[in-house]
Design a protein around this nucleic acid. Sequence first.
DNA 1: AATGCGGGTCTTTTT
DNA 2: GACCCGCATT
Length: 825
Amino acid sequence: MSNPFDDIPFDDGPAPSRNNTSPAPKHAGGSGIAARAMAARSAPRYLEGLNPEQSRAVETVEGPVLVLAGAGTGKTRVLTTRIAHILGQGLAWPSQVLAVTFTNKAAREMKERIGVLVGGAVEGMPWLGTFHSIGVKILRKHAELVGLKSDFTILDTDDQIRLIKQLIQAEGIDDKRWPARTFAHLMDSWKNKGWGPGDIPEGDARAFANGKGRELFTAYQDRLRTLNAADFGDLLCHPIRILKNHPDVLAEYHAKFKYILVDEYQDTNIAQYMWLRLLSQRPKGRPANICCVGDDDQSIYGWRGAEVDNILRFEKDFPGAAVIKLERNYRSTAHILGAAAHLISHNEDRLGKTLFTDEADIDDPKVQVHAAWDSEEEARAIGEVIERLYSDQNDLNEMAILVRASFQMREFEERFIKSGINYRVIGGPRFYERLEIRDAMAFFRVVCQPADDLAFERIINVPKRGLGDASVRLIHDYARRKDIPMLAASAELIESTELKPKPRAALREVVLNFERWANALENTEHTELAETILEESGYTGMWQADRSAEAPGRLENLKELITSMSEFESLRSFLEHVSLVMDVEQNPDDDKVSIMTLHAAKGLEFKTVFLPGFEEGLFPHQRSLDEGGRNGLEEERRLAYVGLTRAKINCHIWFVSNRRIHGLWQSTIPSRFLDELPTTHVDVADPPSGYGGGNGGYGQSRFDKAEPFQNTYSTPGWARAQANKTDATRNNWGSRSGANVERIGYGETDSRRGAGRGSIKGTMIEGELVAKSVADKPSDFTVGDRVFHIKFGNGNIVQIDGNKLTVSFDKAGEKKVLDGFVEKV
DNA sequence: AATGCGGGTCTTTTT
DNA sequence: GACCCGCATT
């Protein structure tokens, strides 16, 4: 099949304008998109309706430009119009514009919208895509410069970890103490910085496996080269190395890319930054035409190496840069913007923007804060609001539930299935990560790329054909000894007597199968071939014979896989697509509520947004606080800001008093972010009907008598918390005491207060003081003690494991709970 | 070689 | 609580 690179002529001939400052050239018909863009030029309708800042961002095409685009200020519109403008003015051919996005979704959207502007599809924009997809393109073209072949395979995380594991074991390192996963993350962070084995600082190298970090890294890269494979990080790092070490190649790209556009600049990591720097270099005195669009307040990917610094430093990096702020918001009501602005103002590291809107309506609802007893009630209450809105003629498509962590999703799914609310999960367990899909893909990979040992190892004994560990090791060792791929090694081994007759026959069949399929590759329709492969390998049969509950679903998925292949022209281009685009597009025609993480929600908007889980420890997430300190907290706050600004009209925030984390019930306190919302834009909503009553199977909660949240939220305690919020906030995250201690403290406080006075929530806000006094109290339980638990009622301790108690509750049965949540009775 | 059990681990976000 | 892994058993 053809190299994906082939269909893009690398040299388009001279640019419409070699010299950027020269007048626009005459156009000789040419590719469809440019011609259409030309037609639009006489009446550049696309410029209509832009506000002055947006117009400036579109029309300042020469030199470096930083567009600070707040949420909902028309960022994508600016980017796409800018491209249309560049094409329309004849400043560059479509193939001379490099436009990088961070996600596939964003790239897709931009393509579509440029298409609308220019009136047609965007076939002519080959260099519009994610960093990774463009990296692949460059790498395929120059693969030999880093010791790869152009048809290298792209490893996903799973392959990567299996490979690292092999290497760790080969080095004689205990893979229990030094897990492959950990090293994968470590190496990932190195690659995010653009480092190769030689570049990592001594300290970093020593940090893993008693100083074997560097050797492992080297061994890993060597192995990738023999496998003719690249991992995700390499898709950025290899091109950087190529551009750095080969001035002629760099010059080619310099000549090629007249205009560079970068979306979500705040999310770029160091490697991506280096990559952009290289490509945007220009001869002395000639500033690059690079336009970076981003929002420092929406930088939420620090944990995977993004450097907010890149955007904060832009003017230094590109002297003379024009900086354009987009602050007029076209999405949300003044209440939502007011709430979001006040929240984000608690961050210190900002370039400082304030969103505004003129569209203030007295009827606009404020941001609603709700309390629920536990996650179950939270889901039910949100479901009820959704049903109410739905019967009020609101589309489910206009509603979204945005969670901090994916485990929160399950509760909503269960609830919605029960009550028949249609929903879609975005970014959940992915199609291409399913076992059967990965197996099937492994077959295809070996057919297309016989040196792909990882794929080969995955399916050599699938379905079971008697080639167990012993046989695999034999093949593996033989291959390594002769320095050939395992499939080739197998072909040799079946001619010898090294294997016992049984496995030998099985292996022979495998080898012959792959030979036959590889031969069919050129002259068989690829969907047909794929089906044949799954059929003849016995893979389909394996699942047909499987009586387990999930087998039919798996077969269904395999069918789906084949179907989705038909859109591609070959098996190979399909494989490429899958490795880069792990998500499957959802059908927007069905009316469904979206459930997704806050991270996945960036860039989207909904009329109504639900933000559950505003509790300390979950949001802000404890781990961000522990590992990231103040920066971590600020990133969490930006995440909250992203969440709020997704809403156009309604924004509902929820928090619960009890959440099950790691299988244990824990009391929680409301998120500090709630304290950071301005009262002028926020309403504390009525408690849901049946508050505290629907606790399911564990009998009457003593909180049934508790006053509703509403009352306590407006108590002096709440007012005081508001007044002191700066102090309170600082207190909370300043201490390294850790949330566990705090939670235990609060938990005890809770049950005590709750028992006597019927006021829960007041405690939580004021709780700090109380918490400190109880946190250090040693727990003194013994097996057999009679205890009371806030949720499960009375019971007897049957086992104690540190601070974990196993209690046999009278009504709820046996549960594991932390000792902080029960008290002796 | 395949299956089943028990223990240990890990639970934020993802191109 | 859920999942993964290794071990022991057949």
